[in-house]
Design a protein around this nucleic acid. Sequence first.
DNA 1: GGTGCTCCTTGACAATTATCAAACAGAGGA
DNA 2: TCCTCTGTTTGATAATTGTCAAGGAGCACC
Lengths: 232, 232
Amino acid sequence: MSKSEHREVRELDLFAEMEEKNFQALMRGSYVQNFPPQIELITEGEPSDFLHVILTGSVELFSTWNRRETSMATVRPISTFILAATIKDARYLMSARTLEKSRIILLPSQDVRDIFAIDQHFARAIVTELAQCYRTVVKSTKDLKLRTSLERLANHLLRQQSRAGGASTFDLASEKRRLASFLGMTPENLSRAFKGLQPYGVTVDGSRVTITDQADIERFAKPSPLIDDHST
Amino acid sequence: MSKSEHREVRELDLFAEMEEKNFQALMRGSYVQNFPPQIELITEGEPSDFLHVILTGSVELFSTWNRRETSMATVRPISTFILAATIKDARYLMSARTLEKSRIILLPSQDVRDIFAIDQHFARAIVTELAQCYRTVVKSTKDLKLRTSLERLANHLLRQQSRAGGASTFDLASEKRRLASFLGMTPENLSRAFKGLQPYGVTVDGSRVTITDQADIERFAKPSPLIDDHST
DNA sequence: GGTGCTCCTTGACAATTATCAAACAGAGGA
DNA sequence: TCCTCTGTTTGATAATTGTCAAGGAGCACC
């Protein structure tokens, strides 16, 4: 791991406040690896041996049942996954695969649990992180249960726009196929949903989205901080 | 609060390991109240002033958006809600209402956060509880995204059956209208879904469900511990 | 410039789910 | 007993979403 990577990891909320010697201990036991695209890092159902930290690239979290698969989240640098399984010493509920070439730190779960037990600041950071994860999934459940697919897409676009800086033209961060799965619909339906948003001033060219009438799409999407604001 | 209630609360995983003096401090600042049915205890969007502990009765957690409402969970004694908002000092993501006459402890959120900061065992218990909550919601998201409504109902019945002791006849714990909302469908559709399970050996009379062919319904439902086992 | 590949889009159709209106059933009260 | 209220069921219909097959666009490679 490079010096700058080491520093970036240290600055993550999860590790920022912990004691230096504990952080060093965690890092000493860790492995850093470069993975090619489309590598399955984690398979749901397996015991959680490592807490993962993604340094570069991107990773998809997905789940399967009965030959069906759904995209649960995309993880981007710099952040960790999957914390809850590590802390509970339980099996993974989601699988993870690299979407592109990715550099990832593997922290042995046992080390994480050991240091959690002795470092108060680390424990506190883990609580904050878990509470954040929990609230994010609750929001996502509300999104799924309370909105139609068209409304989910509209709100997703507004969130993406905001994340991209707020300009009226921005890029979809992910492939449309994956976006469809994330939003809980088929690729064909996503295609039609984009058309369905045209009357509200949304145009798409490839992965480039332009919002021509901000007020109009917001009137339709009715975004709510209790569903769409992932920062609180 | 009665002595036996006091003891029951102390035995909750969340409070069992904490220092006695901290537990006493928490209890001293708490309020115990009896609520009639259909009282809205919490409204989503409001600041989280209290951590709630339900002693008797039952409470529904629900969310609304754009004049739509969906049931998120039913909380039964003895357990707490809603921990994540309390810990993060954030706004509630869900509303809560009593379903029947209920006795509830209100613990001021600030007290919970203060004691969380000084009691390691309490902090550790909170982490475990939050990780549990998180994993439960992830499972519920998988259920929603990977299964049809008929499959969700079938698996829900198997979970209920198992929770009720495993006998072939058992009671639905909740009203059908609420169950429909919890499963993400309309009451009309739930009614039809019950009919749709008849060919697999499921009969319903009021809230009494009988499974005449266990193997058949399980073959259809394909329950998975990674979605349906809420204990891990 | 072709070739093969992947991804996205489109159209026709089927399945699923929701909506609306009406009928029905059970519980509790007058 | 009858009445009323609430919750459930049913039927008809509409809206939404999924499936399947085909076509097109972009891109790397030869």
